[in-house]
Design a protein around this nucleic acid. Structure first.
Lengths: 331, 331
DNA sequence: AGGCATCAAGTAAACGTTTACATAAGTCAA
DNA sequence: TTGACTTATGTAAACGTTTACTTGATGCCT
């Protein structure tokens, strides 16, 4: 085992084929017509014999574009996020690009560290899947093409955003909820530091109030974007036998946590208490048929993200991309 | 917006600080003592002023190590796999390394394409989370440190493997199942092209036969490692009112698909039919409390993977790492 | 035959680093 | 004062590519 063979370089291929490295390069980049058939075949044979693959680092250093993108994701545990990441990765791969994955874990310090790495690596573009506001984010903006997906950062209004209209989705869901439920309603929102969570909570409250059924303050909890935190909020919410006809959550992860607590308390879902989420993790149709939610078009997110990135590379100005959503009511 | 600023290079920092690029380099790599305090402060000021970050590509080209690893994962949809990937990513990040993520989607052609990319990029190491046998895999072995996680490739016995003893886990689970269920038992195994799936099926059958309760051929299906495929197998398995006391699946994803079909048929889980899986996706405790499974220690996988990678870099020979598992019976 | 395109192949510079080596300046002992 | 040693800094080569430019050969036109 021990020492690994040094990788073969273009020089060795050139020597083996008895040509200059320039010719090898020309063959690799298949500039048809710039090289004679005889040389081409000899070089191709040498490449095959030596099992040569061009060293990407050399290529990247020479040409200023390196075909590597960074994806900073706030929680790889979240099936919705990982689905978006995967869709983007697969499209990047289709064009011979690759994706560095970083998990910020919804932690500003960790995101800061990730972004420093990203900056060193001179990537061709950065996808921020739920970004937090932080200094390195500003350093990257204007230096590297960047896209915010699913959550915008208000202090960077010029960075292209891809998402849905969270406020009006929340309002539409709220209308459906009021229609369905006569009883009391609880809200477990996401962290108010996130623009997305704010917009959702805002939409819910606006609509509930407009219809004259405001939610009492003690029936509103602020969770983090995790199952654990959703669970903890549900524990608080459902203590002393208080019961709700519907519990509306800031996203699906929170809803999963709430679900667990309801199960523990023996509440029948969705008969006694209905649970509402947000995002529609693709897993729901398999594992959470009890969950009502808002379907966010993750495949279109990926499509749009790639399209916007291309435009940024061409130097075009790009505004926000607001995609349509669907209510998923599984009552 | 339009044109992005060219990134600042070491040369500009050197000019701004009025020193040579060598001095700047020395400051960056903080070789304490090799540079005078005066120069150090001037350089540090220039770095801060210009918001300079060393270009990783230059560093990588010069030193032969580039601090980037590749993770090729067979299904990012699978929460167990993505948890392992995440644990590894986080550990790599701790040491200032980064991880390229590729999704092979359990498709040999796609994996081939990913591995070609990997080879070009001259990564420091490759983590294969469920590999398929393929030519590029052999090209990488012996050229770049590589580790197989959760599934070995028999034709490459010298590549370090990290996993559990699938056969004996399956046997132990089979014993528990026989003890619990008097009625008929069905098997929905994973693809027999995978060594892991083979070992599991083998373990189940061996134990069932040893206890004189062999599974009938028509009660064994071979699924792919997806929820969809598990569903399709369950459709076939449960046609014409045939019913099972337990359905044993090759992994949790398959079990989710089986679960969906059982739900559609109105079977009460786990009373009428119990479902058994394998891996214990971390999501189970939240969303699939009905699932019995084998807990594979994903955190230890990551720990071990990093440790083995370090050893490979030192040139040490490494054998397989077999970790302990737990039965998770939620009856 | 001389001049001139056309074409294939080679030469060398450049990309941003690190680092072995050279140089210059300072310290100290004799 | 000189020689030897130490220390701080600068110079230049190297890493593996791509590509503008140069060279040399061939063919064609007049």
């Amino acid at each position: 085992m021990s020492a690994m063979k040094r990788k073969t370089s273009i020089k060795e291929v050139a020597k083996a084929a008895g040509v200059s490295i320039a010719s090898v390069s020309r063959v690799i980049n298949s500039e048809t017509g710039k090289v004679s058939p005889a040389v081409r075949t000899r070089v191709e044979k040498a490449i095959a014999d030596l099992n040569y693959r061009p060293n990407w680092i050399g290529q990247a250093l020479r040409g200023q574009t390196n075909n590597t993108y960074a994806m900073v994701i706030s929680s790889i545990q979240n099936n919705f996020f990982s689905s978006v990441a995967w869709e983007i990765e697969s499209r990047l791969n289709d064009r011979g690009a690759a994706m560095l994955l970083f998990n910020s874990n919804e932690d500003a310090a960790l995101q800061e560290r990730c972004l420093k790495e990203v900056r060193s690596r001179q990537v061709a573009g950065v996808f921020m899947l739920c970004a937090l506001d932080s200094p390195q984010l500003h350093a990257i903006a204007g230096q590297t093409p960047m896209i915010f997906i699913n959550r915008k950062v208000p202090s960077l209004p010029d960075v292209p955003f891809i998402g849905i209209d969270d406020r009006s989705a929340a309002m539409e869901l709220a209308r459906a909820i009021l229609q369905e439920h006569e009883g009391e309603i609880a809200l477990v929102s996401g962290p108010q530091s996130s623009a997305t969570s704010r917009a959702r909570l805002d939409g819910f409250r606006a609509e509930f109030e407009a219809r004259n059924r405001p939610v009492a303050d003690e029936s509103i909890k602020e969770a983090e974007l995790s199952m654990e935190s959703g669970y903890a909020c549900a524990v608080a919410l459902l203590e002393d036998r208080r019961r709700y006809s519907a519990i509306v959550c800031g996203n699906d992860q929170i809803a999963y946590g709430v679900y667990r607590r309801c199960r523990e308390l023996g509440l029948s879902i969705p008969v006694e208490t209905a649970i509402y989420g947000f995002d529609d993790n693709p897993l729901n149709q398999w594992l959470a048929p009890w969950l009502n939610t808002v379907r966010v078009p993750y495949r279109e997110y990926a499509e749009a993200a790639i399209g916007v990135m291309d435009k940024l590379h061409k130097g075009d100005a790009v505004g926000p991309t607001i995609l349509p959503y669907d209510l998923v009511l599984r009552r």
